[in-house]
Design a protein around this nucleic acid. Structure first.
Lengths: 342, 342
DNA sequence: GAGGCCGATGTAATCGTTTTCAATAACAGC
DNA sequence: GCTGTTATTGAAAACGATTACATCGGCCTC
């Protein structure tokens, strides 16, 4: 008969079984497992029994009773965004090292999904949350009373009810502008995403830096996709050519837009940097390989993840302390795409 | 005094509080929450009470009692590997859609970490696991008795105790070789990773396809890093030049190696495809942008993730059914890097 | 009109741990 | 030798939900 198949593990072994095997009470087993005060003799007996029975604690039960979920939430827009990929890796490493689990959620910048995941975080009774919210959700977050600490990443915090860690976006954008200026470029266009606070800050830095050099800022905003950027740049350059006011350089606010711009230059048959210098954000491995190499701002991605976890742990340690905002600096990686001074 | 600060949420609201508020028993509340048989009148009262109290079910308690963790594990080598990034996104989407959570673990191909995460999966009582194991762990996996189904991805399953979903690696490699041959290349070198079963399979396909064309195979194996590939290719080409037997094309088994090869051509001042044609795996967005565009095999990454989840759900439905191996085909995306027939 | 059945509801047991509390033993102080 | 203190241990309560089982009307059938 086919039920001879089901031979193994007819019943899960619990702490009771271990206790019986070792001839002690369940309390003693529990104490051994959590390094409580137990005599050496009993400890050894229990450890043997654990091995013999192949016991594995049930984390759900443990969490229920101890009221510690040992779980942290991580809500980002899309894990496929290399920035979040790197951050998530850092978060996971730090979490597992501290004996905690991570629940990862992708929102696609959709406020409804953000709301539902926030609800989930409450039901999971997470210890803490690391969150990159949209502007819409960020505004409501103040009112929502959550019973766990939140650390914001990438998106800037307004008043200051939450700890946060962000790149110094204005400074980073200025770094790029300064570099372009130093290379001799004078008509520096800017292309920015139109959804995140990040782009807003980078635009501000771009504008300020240009002003400092006495240059004219010319910025446009597009949805954060390569396609949108490619189309917009093509349109823009066509107009500019007609009006005789071609930019000699363009900076963009993230790596998706950067890809779009590079694509557009190919389609239009423009050389980089001869016809157009290009600079952007995020030092992904491939930026070194396209064209003459792309000049970019490198974000300390791993550090951002680590900093978020550190902030979270410190907050858990002392819930009363003042909220903190960690601002990290990017560095400018100069490559050929901004090389041939205009 | 400073304790006026702590005003909100002095005690978490449980199902009991909701029951009291609605004037019903806890059982009725539970039934409302799980769409059980309850009269419309009471259902409405309970729903009001839930809203009024701001009740959030405690998932740990629910899981403990119901013995359903509603959690699936995902163990990969490194989420920063774009292949796994995309797969993980597909898995998460499918999971959350089915009302399940995902626990993501990075092993860095380290068997010890794999073992510890497998232990964790048991303690979490996961519903199922999607796993890309190293060869070492794969060998032991047969013996370990786990009380949840496992679906292997990317790494090929040996005998067949587990469901799995993989790319048709030999065929994909052959596709690349055939394309190179059709473009006129005759001395086709191959560079492969030396850790995964994937690379082994791709090498086999490469070799078979070359043999079918009556060509000589010349393959080397390196650690799966861009640096290793770059160094090895440089050394290789130097030797080849001396012996007067330069390959006119090279194919590599993954995107990291591909980056290494491209880097090497730059350092050596070789043009693609004039001096050397290049082809590889994984159609990442940037492959379109470097040099004349890189010819690659496109893996149906999202589909692989989905297929894994489907396999898992089907297995949960019917634990007795025969194990299945889903083999998906890659497609060849031809670009300029293999364009100028040798 | 009595018996049987069914659907809605409540009571209490249960899931597998941790943790409180009491009990015991050992040991020191006087 | 008696008492107070401390270190181990066990018994049982709790954690917050689900669910088996009992109960109670109402309604149908004969």
């Amino acid at each position: 008969m086919s039920d001879s198949v089901k031979a193994t593990g007819i019943k899960a072994v619990g702490i009771k079984d271990v206790a019986r095997e070792a001839g002690v009470s369940v309390a003693t087993v529990s104490r051994v497992l959590s390094n409580g005060p137990v005599s050496d003799a009993l400890r050894a007996r229990v450890e043997d029994a654990v091995r013999a029975t192949g016991y594995r604690p049930n984390l759900s039960a443990r969490r229920l009773r101890s009221q510690h979920s040992q779980t942290i939430g991580l809500i980002v827009s899309d894990i496929r965004n290399p920035f979040f990929t790197a951050v998530s890796r850092a978060v996971e490493d730090a979490a597992f090292q501290a004996g905690m689990r991570v629940i990862l959620c992708n929102t696609d910048e959709n406020p409804e999904r953000e709301a539902m995941y926030l609800r989930l975080m409450q039901e999971e009774r997470v210890t803490g949350l690391i969150f990159a919210p949209t502007r819409a959700t960020l505004a409501q977050l103040d009112r929502a009373d959550l019973d766990f600490p939140v650390v914001l990443i990438d998106r800037s915090a307004p008043a200051g009810r939450f700890d946060s860690v962000v790149l110094d976006n204005p400074q980073a954008a200025a770094l790029l502008v300064d570099h372009l200026h130093a290379q001799g470029y004078r008509r520096i266009a800017g292309l920015f995403g139109n959804t995140s606070t990040t782009a807003v800050e980078r635009h501000a830095g771009y504008q300020a830096a240009l002003a400092a050099h006495g240059l004219h800022a010319e910025a446009r905003f597009v949805p954060p996709t390569a396609e949108a950027a490619e189309a917009e740049i093509a349109r823009w350059l066509a107009e500019a050519r007609r009006s005789g006011a071609m930019p000699d350089a363009v900076m963009v606010s993230n790596s998706l837009l950067l890809m779009g711009v590079v694509k557009a230059t190919r389609t239009l048959g423009l050389t980089i940097p001869g016809d157009l210098a290009v600079a952007g954000f995020d030092n992904e491995p491939w930026t070194e390989l396209v064209g003459p190499g792309l000049t970019v701002i490198e974000q300390p991605v791993h550090e951002i993840g680590r900093a978020a976890m550190t902030l979270l742990f410190e907050r858990l340690d002392d819930p009363e302390r003042a909220t903190r905002k960690v601002v990290l600096s990017g560095t400018c990686v100069a490559r050929g795409s901004t090389g041939g001074g205009g």
